[in-house]
Amino acid sequence: MITDCDEARLITMQDRLVPLLTVERLSKAYGAVVACDRVSLSLYPGQVLGIIGESGSGKTTLLKAIATHLPIDSGRVCYTSTAGQALDLHELPLPRRRQLMRTEWGFVQQNPRDGLRMNVTAGANIGERLMEVGGRHYGQIRQTAGLWLDQVEISQARMDDFPHTFSGGMQQRLQLARVLVTSPRLVLMDEPTGGLDVSVQAKLLDLIRSLVRTLQLSVILVTHDIGVVRLLAHRLLVMQGGQVVEAGLTDQVLDDPQHPYTQQLVSATLVP
């Protein structure tokens, strides 16, 4: 039978998009325990990549290794900078790496107390980051901080209050403002809605979702919550025992899970 495409050459599609981040065969062990076993992934601009897996699956280690918060045993983390340079992050001189992390990257901690400075005011938490990247004008910094409080739906009247007087959900929103104020291109989030009430979670998720869209952020999001990735992630990696056992578009992985572990994870979730 002669088919439509028989005569067609198969050629390699030129990727019109250049990945923002490429992780190649990244491995990291703690003694005999392999936390990440030859993990590879790529992230394209404007995409949200979810990483799910239970505690101990290596997902947080992977995130920290990508952020160079941890040394790695082997592999590469390659980042394409605003200037279009491909940078091997773990080989980069420390000052240059730090500068990148301050300007082009952001990291949202699971516990807002780890991501905020608890002994300075909400306004200062945001303003401090601006000063790190060269902001000098007090009035402007304060004004920008106020705008960001609006963005994350915290009243500007709370600008001079300390974060410990905030609820958990507010602290997490403040951390988002602190991270996003410098307009990073890539944001890494570790269980950003963990430990919050369901109603507070929904609001935060919705906020993250709209910020990701309006700011065209690329995000890697680690969570064990399938509802969170359903709502936020375009793509999904499933990790078990340090390995990526399944990957694809979020709806593919969740609607047609193939690996036994993913099937178990999906069927164990209460359908909302």
């Binding site: 495409c5 198969l10 390699t12």
Partner: peptide, 20 residues
């Protein structure tokens, strides 16, 4: 990166979708 199979538009067909 794995490659994606694409073909230049063949003249022999005008179907928009072909599941085979």
């Amino acid at each position: 990166m794995t490659s994606t199979a694409i073909s230049p538009s063949p003249v022999s067909t005008n179907s928009l979708l072909w599941a085979d």
